[in-house]
Every structure is written in structure tokens, then in C-alpha cells.
């Protein structure tokens, strides 16, 4: 993906650029709001990583300007202002996702990649497939190697989220947001417990485990 990072903090910008490049993306940097807007308008990016507080022009104003031009590039807003209503404000201004500081790079990468795929103009899917796992979203059934697997509704949604991002890291925070709609971080390992139950159902009886824990980051469904 071609990604534009608009961030005034050089260290943070460099860190993000390096990480994204290592993950195989092409990254451009812009150090202030005006430059960011100019660059975003000039080139066709697959995703934008936008800091909220920027010199010359703040992130939300840049985003509104971009959206009023009909630009639908997915935008991930980064901010030190992590309150839920500010997230809502950011999302209303046209942001696709919101990440508050401090964030771990894996979180950022997972979200940017999820966002990039979401913008693919694929038709509404009713079936998901990842390796030998098959999920029917209408019939609410899951099969592995043709064998039916019975899942609780929440486990079903957990697996759906992992399958939609198959092969990529999905963080605990992302799972909490997407599966439970909670925007706070629990102090305990609740997600791990749910993952291990899901793992028991989809991996236990089979030779190759699919659901992997990525240390310090989250989980990945290996295809």
C-alpha cells in the first residue's frame, strides 16, 4: 500500500515510516497540515495516517477539507486526545479509525492494514474462507476441513473478525472494539481467555494450529 503519514513529531514519524516500510508499504511523510493536505490531494494514497494536532493546519480541518473534495481515502487519526467523544468527533469528521497515543506500532500497523482492505470495493460477502476454515455468515456455520464446528455467538464474531484479517495481526484492543464494542482496555487477560476457548474449538482436533498468539501484539489467523 502507498501510505501518507502526516505527523509533526520527527521521531514518531520516522518510527512509523520505518515500521510501515518494513511491513512492505510505500510511505511518504508530511510534517505539517498544509503540506499534508497538498500531498494528499496531489497523489493517490491507499491510506492516510493523520496526527490530530499539527502545525499550520490541524488534522480534523485537513480531513474535512479532503472529504469535501470527495476524497474517500481511508484515514487513521492519531491523537493524544483519547477520550471517547473525541474519537467520535474524529470519526464524524470523516476518519475511518482512531488510535490514541500511546499506541504500539503493531496496533497501528494492524489498523492501517485492516483499513486498507476495508476500502477494497468488494461486494458484501456472505462467505469467508481462510485456509481450510470456512464461515457462512448467513447460516452462521463454521467448518474446518468440511467438519462442522459449533461456536457461541461471541466466538463466532471473534473468529469472523480474525478471518476478515486472516494472515494479519489483530490486536486485543481491536478485538475489544470490533467484537464487544468496548473502547477501554481491561487490566486483565480477558481476551486471551476467549481466544483460548476459540482455539480449543478450531485447532484442537486438527494437525496444524491456525490461531497464533503474536507476543506483545495480538493474534493472527495463519492461512
Amino acid at each position: 500500500m502507498r501510505i501518507l503519514v502526516v505527523e509533526d513529531d520527527d521521531v514518531a514519524a520516522e518510527y512509523v515510516r520505518k515500521g510501515l516500510m518494513e511491513a512492505g508499504h510505500v510511505v511518504d511523510l508530511a510534517g505539517d497540515g498544509e503540506l499534508g493536505l497538498e500531498m494528499a490531494k496531489a497523489a493517490d494514497y491507499d491510506a492516510l495516517v493523520l496526527d490530530r494536532m499539527l502545525p499550520k493546519r490541524d488534522g480534523l480541518s485537513l480531513l474535512k477539507e479532503l472529504r469535501s473534495d470527495g476524497d474517500t481515502t481511508p484515514v487513521l487519526i492519531l491523537s493524544a486526545l483519547g477520550e471517547v467523544d473525541q474519537k467520535v468527533e474524529g470519526l464524524r469528521a470523516g476518519g475511518d479509525d482512531y488510535l490514541s497515543k500511546p499506541y504500539s506500532f503493531t496496533e497501528l500497523l494492524a489498523r492501517v492494514e485492516a483499513m486498507g482492505r476495508r476500502s477494497d470495493p468488494t461486494a458484501a460477502v456472505t462467505k469467508l474462507k481462510a485456509g481450510d476454515l470456512e464461515m457462512d455468515l448467513l447460516a452462521r456455520t463454521v467448518k474446518r476441513e468440511g467438519q462442522n464446528i459449533l461456536l457461541q455467538p461471541r466466538e463466532f464474531r471473534l473468529l469472523e473478525c480474525l478471518m476478515r484479517h486472516a494472515g494479519k495481526v489483530v490486536t486485543r484492543t481491536m478485538l475489544l472494539e470490533k467484537v464487544w464494542d468496548y473502547h477501554f482496555d481491561p487490566q486483565t487477560n480477558v481476551i486471551d481467555v476467549h481466544i483460548s476457548r476459540l482455539r480449543a474449538k478450531i485447532d484442537k482436533e486438527f494437525d496444524t494450529p491456525m490461531l497464533h498468539t503474536v507476543r506483545g501484539a495480538g493474534y493472527r489467523l495463519q492461512v
Binding site: D9, V11, A12, Y15, A80, K101, P102, Y103, F105
Partner: peptide, 12 residues
């Protein structure tokens, strides 16, 4: 938060 984030990032 910005310097702290930077610290966090740099250490990582």
C-alpha cells in the same frame, strides 16, 4: 504524552 510516546517508541 508526545515525549513519553517517543520514549516508549525509542525504547521499543
Amino acid at each position: 504524552r508526545s515525549p513519553l510516546t517517543r520514549l516508549h517508541t525509542r525504547l521499543a
